[in-house]
Design a protein around this nucleic acid. Sequence first.
DNA 1: TGACTTCGTGTGAATGTTACACTTTCATCA
DNA 2: TGATGAAAGTGTAACATTCACACGAAGTCA
Lengths: 229, 229
Amino acid sequence: MPHTYQYPRAALTVDCVVFGFDGGGLQVLLIRRALPPFKNKWALPGGFVRIDETLAAAARRELAEETGLRDVFLEQLYTFGDVKRDPRERVVSVAYYALVKPADHTTAAATDAAEAKWFPVSAIPQLAFDHAAILDTALTRLRGKLTYQPIGFELLPPKFTLTQLQRLYEAVLGTDIDKRNFRKKVLSFDLLIPLKEKHRDGAHRPAQLYRFDPVKYERLKKRGFLFEI
Amino acid sequence: MPHTYQYPRAALTVDCVVFGFDGGGLQVLLIRRALPPFKNKWALPGGFVRIDETLAAAARRELAEETGLRDVFLEQLYTFGDVKRDPRERVVSVAYYALVKPADHTTAAATDAAEAKWFPVSAIPQLAFDHAAILDTALTRLRGKLTYQPIGFELLPPKFTLTQLQRLYEAVLGTDIDKRNFRKKVLSFDLLIPLKEKHRDGAHRPAQLYRFDPVKYERLKKRGFLFEI
DNA sequence: TGACTTCGTGTGAATGTTACACTTTCATCA
DNA sequence: TGATGAAAGTGTAACATTCACACGAAGTCA
């Protein structure tokens, strides 16, 4: 069923940079391409936008198809439109970045992807197309955003300790943070609700578990806050 | 000369939100559409992306064609891809925003545009397509960016007074700023070079003119700074 | 019960932000 | 030519925020 237009048209794709946090470092979800071009190379999950779906819908669909991830935090990142970024023909790609909690890591490769796998951001393999540049842009954005919006919580499980939260900030920002100052600052937002439970993990004092207050969380996310370390 | 594809493809356009500053308030450059749809309605300058030009190149070309503006500060804003945002067919638009100095206001309408005209952001007419939403996104972005990158200077002529700079910040941010605190902060960046000239304008003390140091300016623009008011 | 490991807590110095009012310099006009 | 008007230009004290820094508490395990 061919489609004809007066002028040539670029193909339109979406690509997703999926960040995860495993307690130690920041991770990115990559797929191994099952089809040419760049067959068997690692790449960002993504694919073509259908004529009747929005860009965000396409990103969510591709993410589900290729990695099994659903209901993630997803935000538009940037649109990459270099003329030769795809060897086949002109392809413009709208990039998104996603943040997923470890609990949602029910990843399974599917169509177009031979395999899906997490990589630490410190050890990314060679990537297909201009995906290295896209990943770079996403990392910069994540770092910037983390300091003025509380999106970091999207990367943590529903119940977490302050140390886990601090490790996340340290991993993303790539700096060490003073424990006392970090706690003071985070708690001053009045965003965290201490739970009755404690987190037992080894032969030491158990840590207080927290969840965040969804109402205040949404408010802060819109208004923006300032997390200077 | 028709072009045929296996699957239907969205058309790809760019739209530009052009901000200017006239000493009083923030202005936006709009064109009156010469062709349907929305014929004779006001709209953002923009148009279709050619198959062999980058997105930014398309934005610059359309800007020159429709408004006569060249060599402006241009940055990608967001990509708008709602399925029904264009009544004709599926059109995805990559939006850019531009900042222009008053001196560059050599605007002249041309192809596709019957007329180009500056409007104060406080009095925008009804706009074609989803251009009101695009403009809104651009304003939010400009406000945010102004507080952590020194892009405000792109809106001023090469020589300017501190009062002009303050008026700009006040106009964009929509707040009043204390004169002494503003000067203290701006000068502390060590970014402004006082000129030998003064700016004479009416029956009162003339104002010191400044230009900004291009080297430090570029450095700050990349690193980011924090302009909290 | 002693050794080990992580959790959890406070203070003082330094820095940055805010609020606030008067003198200076020029042009104009009486 | 001196009085007037209008914007330019300048400092300080109260307050808030950030930063550097060290030790007892609570648990497990041998």
